[in-house]
Amino acid sequence: MKIIVFLFSLLILQGCLPDDKQIFIPAHEPKLVVFTQVIPNSVMIVALAKSFSILDSGYTASDGGSGNADSTLLANLLVEDATVVISYQGKTDTLINMGKGIYVSLTIPQVVDENYELSVVDHKSKLQITASERMLPQVNLNDASFSKQTNGTFKLNYSFEDPAGSNWYMMNVYQVDSTKLDTSQFQVQNLFGNGSNQLAQTLFFSDQGFSDKNAAGSLAVDIDTSITKDFIVTLSNISPQYYSYLDKRNKSQNIFTEIFKEAINYPTNVKGGYGFFLTHHPSIKYIHLP
């Protein structure tokens, strides 16, 4: 009898729950999204796409996550009819349209401390963006090695010469399929080109902890030596704004941010759009564990 009364009460309360109602939120206005990559002495690549509204079909929002976009939506977002211009040292270089939102220049040199200006006009949507970034000096990774800890985890030990002033760094650790990579002749384009590398970890830090220009330290890394014994470590001298972006991306993974879907607004150096016009270029070390 008690159970019947309890369930009956629950039913009454459930029946009294008010209907959810729609709320109108101003629609998102699409903007151009930029992301660039510099391969030293080789190529500057600009990838262009558009942002989209979460009310667009093809996007599945998820509680606490970034959601998922299907391939049709992604394909529609690519900006395939744009004029992309990069200016530096009083020169102007119009990038070649490679299709699928990729624009490249094979002639832009890397001039340290030079300001590079990006200008994009999408002829279809009439959207425009500009961005400006100083080319930071490449920092050579003098040494990189792994040391195994007593609990079985690994530490990455590194050293490099820290340029004067405040600097921010990004290190990427890749697990490499050495059968597909000529490790005797490192070329950055090989690293990104053959699709054989698997990211182990991205690490980022500032030079605040270094007491002199010979920066050295160690960072805990999560690598799996049962998959491969070959690794590549890259070091890039990045802008503070991009460091802040990486920091926020990292923090967005924390469980409380995910559970409560706290808003995180990511920084950008693109005026009128999203993403990053990046000019950093990495130095590389190959590590083979015995």
Binding site: S51, F52, M170
Partner: peptide, 19 residues
Amino acid sequence: QIGAYTVPNASFTGVEIIP
């Protein structure tokens, strides 16, 4: 969240959706 965009991740090994 009103929109999103896609960008390569920091290591250029994948694509991320940024809200």
